[in-house]
Design a protein around this nucleic acid. Structure first.
Lengths: 335, 335
DNA sequence: TGGGTATAGTTAATCGTTCAGATAACCCTC
DNA sequence: GAGGGTTATCTGAACGATTAACTATACCCA
């Protein structure tokens, strides 16, 4: 078995309490004793058992992660890498609670309790049937990514979706476009709602009237992008520029445009969202909004840590700026 | 606080031992009592505290994951989704031990012990300075993905890299290619060694001599693919077909070919490896070997579970078949 | 009636920590 | 040298489960 605190205590000739105090930064320990204990700890490679530690009510240093979309989301690794930086410097481990759906009678929240999770990060877009009430009411500090929930000890972080689309529209208007479509993602998702608002206010700023038929309903997938674009192309007066809710849907839209014998950006300008790898790799390379998911990941853990440490802290609401990456899929409006 | 076993015992009018027995499937409990306890458990939404449970030496139901390459690897989410299926059905949670590099004096292995991790999955390619000796000697059941380590209680799972490249070569030879290059990845990685062998045996099968100058050294990146391809193009007698160690390096190679004013597949046929998203999205779409990372992920957990449950089990060594996806980047040899 | 044998349930030790409260050791002052 | 005040260290009771060892009861049979 691994060495425990008793082994250390024996080797150092002190009681376990003293070892514990040294390890937990209490000042009521003699400098020499402290020195000696630390020496033994290093020699014996002692690492306190976290189960025992969290059992007595000490911190578990565990953060749970919950994904509404499953693991296959393209941003997941980026978010995770951002999280990793903060996890390391703050000393948390990240636990993926997989049992969740196994037994319906046990909720995710109970699973969190049973694992003594100190806080939870939730990532993904809102799905109809999904409710986070139980989680929020349980009082477990929670940080949502891309979901605008702010209540109790739950706050959120997100890209500045509103500004991103507004900026894209502004850019297209500078290129002399007037007929600009918005290819929408999942309607009830927070990100999409914000983007739609950005679209409206971008148009309003330039005094271009909002047209219902220029806004497609859909989701963030490529297939939907293809279908939605076909509908726009079938309009009597099709748009000359389209802002898409994701790079994947922009790829779908691009295929639809090319299949219709038109070209990007000569006939139609296209702007994506996300700046995933494919954006720079398709031809023409996609003009898109880059989301800083690394920062979002890192900050989500930092904010959660603050929420964990301060029970009274009002829930955070943090918006991270985005960047418009101009590539080859946008150009001046014809005529 | 969350309900504990005492609350359940009190409500059911039995001792905690009886509750525990019901929950752990002991048969020495009367059917009625069992029924009543389970009823209360459900009512009170009792979920046993895993810290307490693992402290008494019971199973922690925790599997650790370690990545040699950092979190940003393109396959990571696929592996993870595969893992998820098995984790759910076997009841494990997955913990990402982030502290690891924070304090050098504490190793990953100690961190595993302190978290009472039952087994570890290691993913990534071998890096020079990296040693897994401590992990293997610690006796923690370990499953390596893409690293051929088999010793003690550590086994591995990997794609059939050898067969994959051999098959690719065979396919190119059927297309009448004779001058076939291998654009190599990180030299000491297991996957790459196997692929190189597959390359040699594929050529040998067709009695084509192995040429040193047709094998580039490199890594799995796009940049390296670009550079390596340029070197091949500079040869007096450049290859007519190139098998690449990854899709990213194939993308780099394709750029090099196109920048040289040549085209794929008319002048040079190109085969990738991995079948990541970009493979089907670049033009021409990339012929490539698809790795079944979902299955690898799922099996890695299943195998690890067997290793955990049976102390005497010889370490597994599992090879998962791949698939050649024929797209547009390969064609018949000229002339 | 007595004794053997299942069966059902209880008691209490245990895991490795933390920490409140007890104790010890020391110094200082009157 | 008694009393008081620090400072350093120790003792032992938690925390929430599991489980070996035990007890109580019921049942059966000679």
């Amino acid at each position: 078995m691994a060495t425990n605190i008793h082994d250390v205590a024996k080797a150092a000739g002190v009681s376990v309490a003293t070892v514990s105090k040294v390890l937990n930064g209490y000042t009521t320990v003699n400098a020499n004793t402290k020195e000696r204990v630390l020496q033994i700890v290093k020699e014996l490679q002692f690492y306190p058992n976290s189960a025992a530690r969290s059992l007595v009510g000490r911190r578990s240093m565990t953060i749970g992660i919950f994904l509404t979309t499953g693991l296959a989301h393209p941003f997941f690794t980026q978010i995770l890498s951002g999280m990793e930086q903060a996890l390391k410097s703050l000393g948390y481990d990240l636990i993926y609670l997989a049992q969740m759906s196994r037994a319906k009678e046990y909720s995710f929240v109970h699973h969190c309790h049973s694992r003594n999770v100190e806080g939870v990060v939730v990532f993904g877009f809102q799905q109809e049937e999904m409710s986070f009430d139980e989680l929020i009411e349980s009082g477990i500090p929670t940080l949502f990514i891309d979901l605008d929930i702010k209540k109790g000890r739950a706050g959120y972080i997100s890209s500045d979706n509103h500004e991103a689309v507004e900026r894209a529209i502004r850019y297209l208007i500078d290129l002399n476009h007037h007929r600009i479509s918005f290819l929408s993602g999942n309607k009830d998702s927070y990100a999409n709602r914000q983007r739609l608002e950005g679209y409206r206010s971008g148009l309003a700023e330039a005094e271009i009237p909002y047209r219902e038929d220029y806004v497609s309903e859909g989701d963030f997938t490529r297939e939907m992008g293809y279908q939605a674009m076909n509908k726009l192309l079938a309009l009597a007066e099709p748009p000359t520029a389209v802002v898409c809710c994701s790079d994947m849907s922009a790829v779908g839209a691009m295929e639809a445009i090319q299949d219709a014998g038109l070209s990007v950006p000569e006939d139609i300008s296209l702007i994506g969202f996300d700046d995933i790898e494919i954006a720079s790799n398709i031809r023409p390379a996609l003009t898109t909004t880059r989301q800083d998911m690394i920062t979002i990941g890192r900050r989500s853990i930092e904010l959660l840590d603050e929420l964990i440490k301060d029970k009274e802290l009002p829930p955070p609401e943090v918006i991270i700026p985005t960047e418009l990456i101009i590539r080859k899929s946008t150009g001046p409006a014809k005529g």
